[in-house]
């Protein structure tokens, strides 16, 4: 199994541990990644807030670069915003040839042409569709037995394009969590919005969404997610949400490959829990001791 890897900007900055753990886990599962050379930003939600054409041309530049690479490999994006932006180009140019023409006019400045021949896949799609839960289970050496894990999907890997999961009641993470030895925390917030950039532009609105998700997760041992924006909102604003709700949230928010790495016995350097802003000691003590296995 081989993919063109498009990490995106967050994974080089605030979501560094997502980048490292994704590469480590996929490597350990025998998946090869070739990083897209000279990739640029997908535009996130900012391009869409300023220019319709740029919101297509920016992600399209990366697809066009991928089209120049040998073979017919899929593009793998761990970030949900990157994934959606690339997927949107893939879907919309089929419906609107005029749009494709305009995109290509912009891509001319980079000597690139978009044909629309690459598929973009989300990391969760690859983990749940291409790699089976059985393969993951057989790589587990240190099952995280007894941990109640709340699967948090967020929005943009699920909607508006229903590609690999139910966009309202997502479940694709559950077999993976079970294969790691975890039990799935039942809740209905898995596909609800974390507030995204409202945490910066309208924090009084964003913080309520964050607190609502943390409230619903309160009996779980950790939340796992597959999006840098969701992870940041749920992790970084726990203090502020605690102040608002007059409570004390101390919920570990891990990236799915970090939890997988723990169960697969990968090293600290491959998982980098130290890069998370807050992983309470209480959570670390619940992890089975590697020596005991």
């Amino acid at each position: 199994m081989k993919y063109i890897y498009y990490p995106g900007c967050s994974l080089e900055g605030t979501a560094l541990e997502y980048n490292i753990s994704t590469k480590s886990v996929l490597g350990a599962l025998g998946v090869k990644l070739v990083e897209l050379d000279d990739w640029t930003c997908c535009g996130a939600t900012a391009a869409e807030g300023t220019s319709h054409l740029l919101s297509f041309a920016l992600p399209a530049r990366n697809i066009a670069l991928a089209e120049k690479m040998k073979g017919d490999l899929d593009v793998l994006a761990p970030c949900s915003a990157c994934y959606l932006n690339l997927k949107r180009v893939e879907r919309e140019i089929v419906l609107d040839p005029g749009l494709l023409k305009k995109i290509n006019q912009v891509l001319e400045t980079e000597d690139l042409v978009l044909k629309g021949k690459r598929k973009t896949r989300h990391l969760l799609d690859v983990l749940s569709s291409d790699i089976s839960a059985r393969d993951i289970a057989s790589a587990v050496v240190r099952p995280v037995n007894g941990l109640r894990i709340a699967p948090y999907y967020g929005c943009q890997c699920l909607r508006p394009y229903a590609v690999f999961d139910d966009p309202e009641k997502p479940r694709s993470m559950e077999p993976i969590l079970v294969s790691l030895g975890a039990s799935v925390y039942e809740w209905d917030m898995g596909g609800k919005c974390c507030g995204a950039s409202l945490m910066s532009t309208a924090p009084e609105a964003g913080i309520k969404l964050v607190a609502g998700i943390l409230d619903a997760a309160q009996d779980a041992d950790a939340v796992v997610t597959v999006c840098p924006m969701c992870q940041m909102n749920l992790e970084a604003y726990q203090r502020r949400a605690s102040k608002m709700r007059k409570t004390h949230y101390a919920m570990p928010i891990l990236y799915l490959p970090q939890l997988m790495g723990l169960a697969m016995g990968l090293t600290d350097e491959q998982i980098r829990l130290d890069l998370n802003l807050c992983v309470p000691d209480g959570f670390l003590h619940k992890l089975p001791d590697a020596q005991a296995v």
Partner: peptide, 18 residues
């Protein structure tokens, strides 16, 4: 909100990555 989006795009224009 406008300033937020525009500042983001400005950094992308300068470096290709934000």
């Amino acid at each position: 909100s406008v300033g937020f989006y525009k500042s983001f795009m400005e950094s992308v224009r300068r470096h290709g990555r934000v």
